[in-house]
């Protein structure tokens, strides 16, 4: 249950919240069916958004009660759309395994052992996913190498490093045939990828400063005590706001037949809220699961104050 690209659940209509939960469970089920039980652990909010985005051009798929391993004996609503989930599930597996391989390269032998084990665990799943999306698998390898080179050179250009990552995210729509659908989807995903990279860089800034690790914000802005100055933080916020604006403009051009309100919620409400939480230091990894609950509680508090 990780990821930055998520809706503001407290501001979602009940039917949209149900559709979101069903899509999340549907992606988990599709990962299990197509890539084995271990692949279910790779489900995340970012790839749920990818599924909803790609599925928005068609009428909403049917849902059904499905067995949920997290609830042991329980069942949950999940979307039944094996074809629609195919690309999102393949992207999930490819991105995870390539990230694990990247970690194996970065870490020493002993610290890299867990990543080596996980890479072996998902090896067959990766081969199957790469057969389904060979171009995307090749693009991911290429862009991660480019990203690695930029990080090794300690690039001060946040555009260049964010671009290397955003190209991977945009590549998740590379297999769409219709240009009228592919171009806005790629643009939306590119800007979302930029947002993801910058939010993650800000989230990791303090830790990277303590470990003297590369972080593009350290080389682009003046950092003191692991934090940006207020002026630089405002500047960075304006950059991410511009990405949200461009993603929203691309979303408006998609021929949507389903999930419109849900996707708009993610772009216009979810992303800015996540960035605000990152800025406030309330989006640390251990709090990520709790984040939506906290946001809901804060909203309820505001209502009470009013």
């Amino acid at each position: 249950m990780f990821g930055y690209v998520r809706p503001r659940r407290d501001l979602l209509a009940p039917e949209d919240l149900e559709a979101y939960r069903a899509a999340y469970c549907g992606l988990c089920r599709a990962l299990g069916k197509q890539y084995g039980f271990a692949a279910r652990f790779l489900v995340n909010y970012d790839m749920t958004f990818l599924y909803l985005l790609r599925a928005s051009a068609a009428p909403a798929a049917q849902s059904a009660r499905c067995w949920c391993p997290a609830k042991l004996c329980g069942r949950k609503d999940c979307t039944l759309d094996p074809e629609g989930f195919g690309a999102a599930a393949a992207c999930t597996v490819i991105l995870t395994v390539e990230k694990l391989r990247d970690n194996v390269r970065d870490e020493g032998f002993f610290r890299g052992l867990p990543y080596r084990f996980l890479t072996l665990l998902y090896r067959r799943a990766y081969c199957r996913a790469a057969r389904r999306l060979p171009d995307f698998a090749a693009l991911t390898v290429r862009q991660l190498h480019a990203l690695h080179a930029l990080e090794a050179a300690k690039s001060p250009s946040i555009d260049a490093v964010a671009d290397a990552f955003a190209q991977i995210v945009a590549g998740c729509a590379g297999d769409l045939k219709d240009p009228a659908l592919r171009r806005p989807t790629e643009q939306l995903l590119y800007q979302t990828g930029r947002f993801l990279y910058l939010a993650d860089a800000l989230d990791d800034l303090r830790g990277d400063c303590q470990q003297d690790a590369y972080n593009p914000l350290r080389y682009r802005f003046s950092v003191s005590d692991g934090a940006l100055t207020q002026g630089d933080l405002d500047y960075l916020t304006q950059l991410t706001d511009s990405s949200v604006n461009l993603a929203g403009a691309a979303l408006a051009l998609l021929p949507m037949r389903a999930h419109e309100a849900l996707l708009e919620n993610v772009i216009y409400l979810g992303l800015p809220s996540v960035f605000a939480a990152v800025k406030a230091g309330k989006f640390q990894s251990r709090d990520r699961i709790q984040w939506n609950k906290n946001a809901k509680r804060e909203n309820e508090d505001k209502e009470t104050d009013r």
Binding site: Q238, D241, S242, N245, L251, A252, Y268
Partner: peptide, 15 residues
């Protein structure tokens, strides 16, 4: 102004 995030598209203005 556009790149400073000062200009918001139609939908975002509604949100």
């Amino acid at each position: 102004r556009t790149v400073q995030g000062g200009y918001t598209p139609y939908r975002q203005a509604n949100y």
